[in-house]
């Protein structure tokens, strides 16, 4: 059976006055109906560009995309806008990073939800309104009848993100792309939104790509995790494997920079020194080498490729993955 979504060797670069910015460098992934893929990386890792490239939302005149993106077996990379528009909203939908700027500030909430319903599903005005109200209810918005006529500015951030989820789910898509859906929200609200997404996903048997900088967010919610760094996939594994057999020092570093309840108070969080490399002129070797505590000569010279690990489905791009290094240290 063909997977719902298959991405093969996807490259994305942006033309800038100073040269090409290679934001995504050869990413492959696949996703089955009903499963969740987590894409993790710090800002600038290319995860947002990747998600937008998969959807086909990047501006054509400045972004060059090569490789392959297949949805239900059909090639959609660089497909004409008219063709993509048939997928957008109805097959693939997106929840954006910032609920403050992603809703149109001058249109009422109701209009922004019913719009897609009326266009894609040909509903009448009253049918659309009814559906929209039930959607608002499903995403947990109290007194939806009043909210229906509100402007985005009259709602809190959490409420707006719920509205955005309602818009994304309006036409029952098969694949939901959630790009940092909780970044701008309070911690308590973050958990609510993520739980809401999981619940709705299971109810609807939807596939989901959850893009985040926070390993904790995907730890309990994703079936598989991809770790990105400087436009490259540096490690990918089923969730439980990743957390038990972590091989790439960057993944370890990401985990180390997360606060945990089990830590005694005043524990110093590990920070990753330095900055991600300049994507205009990436270094010759491993992109993480300049910041990697274990980096050796080879790391600076040659770029590691993704190799299969011991467990099926686990691969990493590292010359000296953690278990090997530990062995070297003990011997």
């Amino acid at each position: 059976m063909t997977p719902l979504l298959e991405v093969d060797d996807l490259h994305v670069s942006f033309a800038t006055p100073r040269g090409a910015v290679r934001a995504v460098q050869g990413v492959s992934l696949s996703l089955e109906q009903g499963t969740t893929l987590g894409i993790v990386g710090e800002s600038g890792s290319g995860k947002t560009v990747l998600s937008r490239a998969i959807m086909g939302l990047l501006p054509r005149h400045s972004a060059t995309q090569t490789g392959s993106v297949r949805y239900q077996g059909n090639e959609i990379l660089n497909a004409p806008n008219d063709e993509l528009r048939q997928l957008w909203g109805t097959h693939i939908a997106m929840v954006f990073q910032d609920p403050m700027t992603s809703l149109n500030p001058v249109l009422r909430i109701g209009r922004q939800i019913t719009e897609t319903l009326r266009i894609h599903l040909d509903l009448t005005k009253s049918e659309a309104k009814e559906t929209a109200l039930s959607l608002l209810m499903q995403v947990g918005i109290p007194s939806p009848v009043e909210r229906f006529n509100a402007y985005p500015g009259q709602l809190s951030g959490g409420m707006r993100q719920r509205v955005m989820i309602a818009i994304a789910l309006a036409c029952a898509p098969n694949l939901l792309m959630a790009d940092e859906p909780t970044t701008g929200l309070d911690v308590t609200v973050q958990a609510q939104i993520l739980d809401l997404l999981s619940t709705l996903q299971h109810e609807r048997q939807m596939a989901m790509i959850l893009v985040t900088h926070d390993l904790g967010v995907v730890a309990t919610r994703a079936d598989e995790i991809i770790v990105m760094y400087a436009g490259n996939v540096v490690e990918r594994a089923p969730t439980n494997v990743l957390f038990t057999q972590m091989s790439m020092p960057y993944t370890e570093a990401l985990l180390g920079s997360m606060p945990r309840i089990s830590y005694p108070s005043h524990t110093r969080l590990l920070s990753i020194d330095g900055r991600p490399p300049d994507l205009l002129s990436p270094p010759a070797g491993c992109p993480f080498a300049p910041r990697c505590p274990y980096a050796q000569g080879k790391c600076h010279r040659e770029k590691p490729t993704l190799v299969e690990g011991a467990v099926p489905g686990h691969s990493y791009a590292c010359w000296f993955p953690l278990p090997i290094r530990e062995k070297a240290a003990t011997s």
């Binding site: 937008r52 959807m55 939302l57 997928l87 957008w88 909203g89 954006f96 897609t116 894609h120």
Partner: peptide, 8 residues
């Protein structure tokens, strides 16, 4: 971008 992703 959001409006585009809605398929408008």
């Amino acid at each position: 971008t959001m409006a585009r992703s809605k398929g408008l």
